[in-house]
Amino acid sequence: MADALLEVTRVTKVFGGLTAVHAVDLEILAGEIRGLIGPNGAGKTTLFNCITGVYKPDGGEIRLEGSRLNGFKPHRITKAGIARTFQQIRLFGEMTSLENVEVGLDAQHRAGAISAILHLRRHRIENEEASREGLNLLRFVGIERYANEPSRNLSYGDQRRLEIARALGTKPKLLLLDEPAAGMNPKEKEDLMALIRKIRDSGVTVLLIEHDMRVVMGVCERVAVLDHGEKIAEGPPEQLQKDPRVIEAYLGREVAEDAAGA
């Protein structure tokens, strides 16, 4: 398809004797919010790690806007336009919120050591830009009042938001969110859903791993389901809720048969 942003073709990842991801195809269109669900251990995060270069896929191909990303180092993939957040929050704890976002923004910056030592124009412009845009991003996710607070002092929900702001700092085309709603209360989840929509509306495509079905059903236009490393279903969320394979993956065969019979 012409406007496929990310094409994942038959990606496989094997750990020893365990095939964590097996020949998964995934095509994400520019401008959509795509969900990726599946029971624990289904291979969702492994797939994320393959896309972002943390793992090298053992087979298959990953293309962003048509160009191959396989074998790139994570920082190269980030610069190519894929940013992510982590399942376990991984902020730079001692740095302030603003500094955290600035590290993300620095992915766009080019000033080297000499420029920094001599305070050359490029360094000054980029440094100024980093703090200005950093504040904008903090405002975007709604935590600008903690700009100068060390990030480890932030509440759990705010840390999740900061991770998103930091990832957005790298100016991604595609944002991968790994269980962003984990540990959030209902109010925070509502806000998160609004934030995800806002991110999409700003022109960033979103791929979301999430266990909370209300969040998935609430924001995703299409959802892919992984089980035992394979994609077992894909489609709009309402349709998947009735799909016997999906119910079986989550609840077991008997329940699935009951549901089909009923």
């Binding site: 943390v54 920082h75 980030t78 982590f86 991984r90 730079f92 590290v103 620095d106 992915a107 790298t170």
Partner: peptide, 12 residues
């Protein structure tokens, strides 16, 4: 602070 996260944020 976190090398994996740094790499993921585009730090070489």
């Amino acid at each position: 602070e976190d090398e994996v996260a740094a790499e993921a944020m585009g730090v070489p």
